[in-house]
Amino acid sequence: MSLDSIISALGTEPEPDTASKELALDGREDLSRHSAFAHKLRHEYIDEIKRIGKIKEEFANGILKFLWAFSSFCAIVVVMQAYPQLGFHLDKSIILTLVGGTFASAISLVAIVLRGLFKVEKEPPPLSKEDEKK
């Protein structure tokens, strides 16, 4: 005898027991709890992204301020070198090194900051012939 034949013989379906009701209720509570947890994680993730963005902005501003200060110092040295009546004189090779080093460090700092702030996702490596067969 199958369960369907017993139910049809009785004429009504049996009521679910309390354990089944509790299980269904627990399932809805678990879903609600997981949904609330996912919502909380999403907001924490967004807050973390904002915090990292602020740190990156402060770092970039600091680099820019350093670059301005160092470039200004080099410009002052070059201007002082241009007027011998100021009593300031450096060898030509020192001035060339100072100006060349400033230019190189300015370009490299800009490149490093831009690469760090605006990361580009690398493309995945091409599939090998063995992977393509799968």
Score class of each variant (00 low, 15 high):
Y83E: 02
S108Y: 13
D26A: 11
P126E: 03
V110E: 09
T97H: 09
L67P: 00
L90R: 04
L98T: 00
M80Y: 07
R28T: 06
R28I: 01
K50I: 07
I7V: 15
L117E: 15
F70E: 13
S72F: 13
L10V: 13
D4W: 07
L31G: 14
L64G: 14
K133N: 12
D91Y: 10
L3Q: 04
I7P: 02
G62W: 05
R115I: 03
V110D: 09
S71R: 05
D47C: 05
E132M: 08
R42T: 10
A24N: 13
Q81V: 02
A36L: 09
K133V: 10
A19Y: 08
R42Q: 11
G116N: 07
D30F: 07
R33T: 08
E48V: 09
I6N: 04
A69T: 11
W68D: 15
V77I: 08
D4F: 04
I107E: 02
R115L: 08
V99Q: 00
E44L: 14
R115C: 08
P125E: 09
T97I: 12
K65D: 15
K21Q: 11
G53P: 00
L23A: 13
G100M: 06
T12R: 04
F103Q: 11
S32H: 08
A38S: 15
G53N: 09
C74H: 04
T12H: 05
E48G: 12
I94S: 06
L86I: 01
L31E: 12
E121N: 10
L10H: 12
K119V: 01
A38P: 01
L86V: 03
L86E: 03
M80A: 03
I94T: 10
A75E: 08
H39C: 11
D30N: 12
A36H: 08
S32L: 07
S2C: 12
A36C: 07
E44Q: 13
D17V: 06
G100T: 07
L3C: 11
H43C: 06
E123S: 04
L114N: 14
L67I: 15
E29A: 10
E121L: 09
L3T: 03
L25F: 10
E130G: 01
A60L: 10
D30K: 03
H39I: 07
E29K: 02
A69I: 10
I49H: 07
I95P: 00
E123Y: 02
S5E: 14
H34S: 15
A19V: 11
F73C: 08
I63H: 07
A69H: 14
I52S: 09
L127I: 05
L90Y: 04
E58F: 12
D17Q: 06
T97M: 11
T97Q: 13
F103D: 11
E57M: 06
D91M: 10
I52K: 09
E44P: 02
S71G: 08
A19I: 07
F66S: 13
S20E: 12
P126V: 02
A111V: 06
Q81G: 00
E58Q: 13
K134W: 00
S93D: 15
R28C: 06
D131E: 15
I7D: 04
Y83C: 03
A82T: 02
E48M: 13
I94K: 03
I55H: 07
K40R: 14
D4L: 13
